[in-house]
Simulated assay, not measured.
Amino acid sequence: MASLNLPSFKFSVWFFVCFFSVIMIIQGAKYVSNLSPLCMKCLCHASTSCNASFGCSRGYCGPFFIPRQYWMDSGKVTLPDDDPDRDNAFSDCSRDYVCSQRIVENYMAKWGMDCNRDGVTDCNDYAALHFYGKDECEKSLSSTNFGRRYVTCNPSAGISL
């Protein structure tokens, strides 16, 4: 039976964790369990049919239809080299698909929860959290236009909203 070299194993695990962390920092991405690219596309579709040219309307901006408070709760994500305190930083970022996706990722990383209390935090929860916000995400999406669009692309098909 071969013996396990514990110091070497600990170093390997430590190295892997550090390497993965550096890669995530360099890419500026957040890892959010079950927030897949398909789920992100579905949230975008449910918000505005993923209209990349959607400006701002009634205080909501961009393809993910993001309100200012959501942006603030996500950490005031901005376009590269922008100042979050600049007057148009919110609208400029939220109207840019890549930047608005980072807003959503940050929001979900910070506030993600099992909104429908089914024991799993998945795209259904992220959809409710995105639409209703962190304080009311337990509400059903079924009677909303967002919810009707969401079910057409729901990556967790078969799970009720």
Rank of each mutant, 00 (worst) to 15 (best):
D114G: 04
N88P: 00
K110E: 13
S21I: 01
Y150W: 15
A52T: 10
D73P: 03
S160Y: 10
G55I: 00
A128P: 00
R86K: 14
S57V: 01
L6P: 00
F9G: 07
F19Y: 14
G28I: 00
C56L: 08
K10T: 06
A46E: 02
W14R: 12
Q101M: 12
I159H: 13
A46S: 10
C153W: 13
R68N: 07
V77M: 03
K110P: 02
T152R: 15
N106F: 03
T144G: 02
W14E: 11
K76W: 04
C99A: 04
A157L: 12
L161C: 03
K134D: 11
G59A: 11
F90S: 07
D96G: 05
D85V: 00
P84T: 06
D73H: 09
F15L: 14
D92G: 04
D96Y: 08
A52M: 13
S3A: 11
R117M: 13
S47G: 04
L79S: 04
A2P: 10
I159C: 01
S57D: 09
K76N: 05
P84Y: 12
D87P: 01
M113I: 05
S100D: 06
T78P: 11
A29G: 05
A46V: 00
Y126G: 01
G62Y: 06
N51V: 01
N5R: 15
T152P: 07
Y126R: 02
G55S: 09
F131A: 04
D118K: 11
M1H: 12
M24F: 12
C56W: 10
R86W: 13
F146S: 08
Q27K: 13
K76F: 02
T78G: 11
R148L: 04
Q27N: 08
S156V: 11
T48P: 02
K41N: 11
K10M: 14
A109D: 04
N5W: 10
Y60C: 05
M72C: 06
D125W: 08
S160N: 10
A2Q: 13
S160K: 15
A52C: 03
F20W: 09
E138G: 10
R58F: 07
Q27L: 14
S47A: 15
C153E: 00
A46L: 03
C50A: 06
F65A: 08
G75T: 02
N145V: 03
S140D: 12
S57E: 05
K139T: 00
V32H: 06
Y150H: 05
Y107D: 00
S74I: 06
S100C: 04
S47P: 00
E105N: 05
N116E: 07
V120L: 15
L38R: 14
R148Y: 04
E105L: 01
L38A: 15
Y97G: 04
R58G: 06
C61L: 06
F19D: 01
D87T: 03
F54H: 13
V17R: 12
P7N: 05
E136N: 15
V32Y: 09
G55M: 05
D122W: 12
C56G: 12
Q69R: 10
N51R: 13
G59R: 14
D87F: 13
V22H: 09
K134M: 12
A2H: 13
Y70L: 06
I26K: 11
Y31V: 08
D125R: 09
G158R: 01
E136Y: 12
H45K: 13
D82Y: 14
S3P: 07
S91W: 03
R148P: 00
